[in-house]
Write a protein that binds this DNA or RNA. Structure first.
Lengths: 123, 123
DNA sequence: TCGAACCCTCACATTGATGTGAAGGTCTAC
DNA sequence: GTAGACCTTCACATCAATGTGAGGGTTCGA
């Protein structure tokens, strides 16, 4: 598919899709006319990238961890350098902390909303 | 306490503490000499703000939801406008999605690390 | 009283993720 | 064959979070 369709299906501007490619987050084939050509899994890939970006990870990190997230592994274990392992462990911990922070604060919001509802129904 | 101590205790630059204040995320008293004066809870507050910022929330949103997160409530229920409620519900859902994304990808990292370890021990 | 170590405000710089638009090539349908 | 809807690259703009430094006041200990 071409960039317009991918943009529409992922809710992402064309500009950003080109940017993600420039950052090495997604890859695109090229048609004979120079047009980018995406395969079906690109849709999920873009959505995943957007999710991680939205959760505060910079493109630099996303680029590093993405190959390890693929289900049929594209990166194999002998390729894993000690620095890579260290990066992954650090990011794993950081993501855990981020998620905890989000859930903790979300629960506080839920609690507040519950209290508001209770208050309103008592009026 | 003054800004230097708060900076040290929260691992935040003075510049950023002033920025957070400017954005209405933290409040500071003022000494007779114009120096900012922080109370003890400011430490937790700053840490919470940093956590949310790191998890991808913009200051604009943090400012809106922070009052609802305080344990002894500083914002009371009659104050809750319908728009406020809508914002909170939207952010609640967004935070849930963010946390899910983080945990899902973190688990994939964990899985990858496990596989690497297994591979290494088999060599 | 002097110097070090604080603090203040103001302002300009940078970085990363985005928007926007220009100048131009390609494809399709009329 | 021309118009409209795609696509390309390139470049400049913006916004939020953050760094940095200038110019100047305060506090405290030697």
């Amino acid at each position: 598919m071409r960039i317009g369709e991918l943009a529409e299906r992922t809710g992402t501007s064309r500009r950003l899709l080109r940017y993600y490619e420039e950052q090495g987050l997604i890859i695109a084939g090229r048609g004979p006319n120079g047009y980018r050509d995406y395969d079906e899994p690109a849709v999920d890939r873009v959505i995943q990238v957007r999710g991680l970006l939205d959760a505060g990870l910079p493109t630099r990190i996303i680029k590093q961890i993405l190959p390890c997230l693929d289900k049929p592994r594209t990166i194999y274990f002998p390729d894993a350098t000690p620095e890579m392992i260290a990066t992954l462990e650090a990011e794993r911990d950081r993501m855990t902390r981020r998620a905890e922070c989000l859930l903790r604060n979300r629960d506080a919001i839920v609690e507040y909303l519950d209290a508001v509802r209770e208050y309103d129904s008592a009026v």
